[in-house]
Simulated scan of single mutants.
Amino acid sequence: MEFVTLADTGLRLSRVGLGTWAIGGGWWGPSDRQDSYTTVRKAIDLGITTLDTAPIYGFGLSEEVVGQAVKDSGRRDQVIIATKAGLDWSNNQVVRNSSLPRLTQELEDSLRRLQTDVIDLYQIHWPDPVEPIEETAAFLGQLFKQGKIRAIGVSNFSPAQMDRFRQVAPLHSAQPPYNLFERDIEADVLPYCRQNGIHTLMYSSLCRGLLSGRMGPETTFAAGDMRSGIDPKFTEPRYSQYLKAAAELTQFAQERYGKTLPQLAVRWMLDRPGVSVALWGARKPYHLDAVAGLWGWSLDEAAMQTIDRILQTCIPESIPPSFMAPPVRAA
């Protein structure tokens, strides 16, 4: 396992973290709580110390599972729990809400569900245009000074929004979507974070399973799964284009390195300048089997160029993950 120390905090994060969005079910179809619990325990046993969750994942379910698994492991002092705030589902619709009353309540709820007295990395899940970023930053800055959280992060923020945030409070990390198929942040967010010493936790490392090596034309998705009609990458003709790219990348990974597609995809991320942590989404224990094959090798420039050629040939138009953005509530 590789590790990185989060700037100015002393927090030591495993460079592969467990992403627990799918554990909550919801947009991923039904989720089995026991499988989810066992998956978190396996991640910890594998040396994955970075556990990323959020209240919105299953409306508290993901945090509850993570909290119980960490407690039962007896390794709370070795684990970095990263969670988020700023989404509201109280009126049967998920909207952005970083109002101070909402953030105050979310903190207490997360501490309870996670069965901890401090959150290691606390992140604003999505920017809320209704609330001044400076007020949100000041609130997290106070939590940081009070020792209720050990580090401050944001997710899905632009460089301009991070700039405003940093005028008021320290910003230790950013969490944008990033993977072989979704690279928009290379134009702005990634260089901004590199220039300003902000660590990055990249979500959607396997692009909702498109880089898992387990999908084909015959793959079907349960009702309610975002890949069944919501995510445009999974509708034709785009789906076939991504599957073709995945097949060629699989062949390249096997022939060049003796590795699988997910191992190539995540190693590619870890070798990109400015990438601190790649979040590996899983909700069944076997989803983590390939993690052990990530260490002890890297991609050279020739390999990077070959990968770029495959992507340019197979995918004529890159589709950003903008469909995931929750709506803004009424002012």
Rank of each mutant, 00 (worst) to 15 (best):
M226D: 10
K145L: 12
L206E: 00
S90T: 15
V168G: 08
T5N: 13
R267N: 10
V168C: 07
A7C: 09
A169Y: 05
T9K: 01
Q93S: 13
F234Y: 15
S212I: 08
Y242I: 01
D128P: 00
Q254K: 15
A160M: 13
W89S: 14
D128V: 00
E134L: 01
Q115P: 08
W126I: 04
R113W: 06
Q142S: 13
P217H: 03
Y37S: 06
T260K: 00
R75F: 08
D88K: 11
V118K: 12
S62A: 15
R194A: 13
S98T: 11
V118E: 11
I315R: 07
T220D: 09
I44E: 09
A246G: 06
F144I: 09
I56H: 06
I124Q: 12
G24C: 05
I315Y: 05
H199C: 07
D184I: 10
T306N: 14
K284Y: 05
E106Y: 02
Q254L: 13
F323Y: 15
A85E: 09
D117H: 11
E134V: 09
Y239S: 00
G224T: 03
Y239R: 15
L243H: 02
Y286L: 01
G10L: 03
A290D: 14
R166K: 13
F234H: 06
Y192E: 09
D163S: 14
S14E: 09
Y192V: 05
A247E: 14
D289A: 03
E63I: 01
W297T: 04
N92H: 15
R15Y: 02
I319A: 01
S276Q: 04
S73L: 10
Y257K: 14
P55L: 06
V291N: 01
A43W: 00
L121E: 03
I152N: 05
N156Y: 06
C193F: 03
S158W: 11
R238S: 12
I44P: 08
Q241V: 02
R33S: 15
N179I: 06
V291D: 00
E317N: 11
Q241Y: 04
N156P: 06
E63R: 04
I56A: 13
Y192R: 08
I80H: 06
W89E: 12
Q105L: 12
S240R: 13
S158N: 07
P262T: 02
L210C: 02
L180H: 06
T38G: 05
T49D: 02
